[in-house]
Design a protein around this nucleic acid. Sequence first.
DNA 1: AAGTGGTCTAGACCACCGC
DNA 2: CGGTGGTCTAGACCACTTC
Lengths: 235, 235
Amino acid sequence: MAYKYETVAADIRAMVASSLSPHQAIPSERELEATHGVSRLTIRHAIATLIDEGLLYNVHGSGTFVGSPTLFSKTPKLTSFTEDMKSRGHEASSRLLTMSREPASTETAHALGIPAGTECARLRRLRLADGEPIAVEDVRVPGPLLDIEEFTSTSSLYEVLADAGHEVYRAEQEIKAIALDEEAAHLLRVPLGTPALGVSRVSSDRRGRSIEYAFTLYRADRYTFQLAVTREADK
Amino acid sequence: MAYKYETVAADIRAMVASSLSPHQAIPSERELEATHGVSRLTIRHAIATLIDEGLLYNVHGSGTFVGSPTLFSKTPKLTSFTEDMKSRGHEASSRLLTMSREPASTETAHALGIPAGTECARLRRLRLADGEPIAVEDVRVPGPLLDIEEFTSTSSLYEVLADAGHEVYRAEQEIKAIALDEEAAHLLRVPLGTPALGVSRVSSDRRGRSIEYAFTLYRADRYTFQLAVTREADK
DNA sequence: AAGTGGTCTAGACCACCGC
DNA sequence: CGGTGGTCTAGACCACTTC
């Protein structure tokens, strides 16, 4: 069930991998149009997706070229902790610390855009990479969305939510530096006051309805945040 | 010299601002096609740019809708310190600490993809927001790109580089939490060991050629990093 | 079934780059 | 100047949502 632009994109990806070096030009759009027997718009659609990935770049009036290796890494995308760790070459695991239902604090209510006091499911988890503690996570999900009775320490929160019809599509994150308090320092096995990365995340579905509010503390010596940005968002 | 899709995008933006609330539908693509007298592809192009900005979202088979306020803030884009501060409602200023030419360290050479020992321009600047110190910045630019004799404390590095034909287009950043050393703590006027956000940035032009390698320490109590991410990068 | 956005065609002309 | 990517048209059909 592949669309034409997807097969064209796959063809170009294969051509780049097999026989082109960074900064070499790929065939022009009109050439690709002829060799693939599709319209130029379809070629452009395929190339646009590969530019999004950072595999190619183009210059108006000049051509389309293979990106340099430092441009390979993609624009930031939303991933689960497990996916994130896997992409970094680590095996993720998790230990459920507490699981409860509580009324939303004013902070949680504001973040999720719900009335204060609304019942929420709250999960606190210790996150491990290759068996070593790397982060402490504190998540709130609005009451009706998650049935905590069905949640176990090995469950993927995003999968459970998706199965219930709430697929996470987008998130806003705020990253700050924080000195660890006693409890978090103990859980992460570092001295009190050690700097850590604190990440607040509000996730929502495609329609912009809030799904979760999470605050995660990452050990600074084991975790850094990486992202690529471009000068213009449009195209 | 505005393109049609730009004027259509501006029209839609105005319509949203003046008379639509979050989650309300905008007119269908075929309606807009008729009312604006342009082809549907042009309408789609306009809508695509607005979706990129987070102003709209669409659902296949259902319609195109106004995004909720929490989705307003855009996907992360590359900005200068001055632009960044302005968007946060602060006035940026700068104090040039040191300016020199030095051979590239192995770290700098690796980051910029140049041979170790290549001469680079190095700038160290104290960054201020509303007159208060907020960050210490340490920037290296490969030798031939920047004439430090022409650089003053009020110059915009990106503008000077752009004037010399090296326009910053993309950057890769790494964010970590760090305890401030004595010198940085003194410059930022906080106690030794205070947590700070450390941001490494390698910027490149549209062709992927490295332009600058910067390391910036931000006061944790005055600066946080914000970004929106989506589940899939393509479309 | 009707309406929506998603893909696709076969052209055309414009804006930009390099020689 | 010729070749490149960027914009645009007027249609067509497909895939999905909603009723």
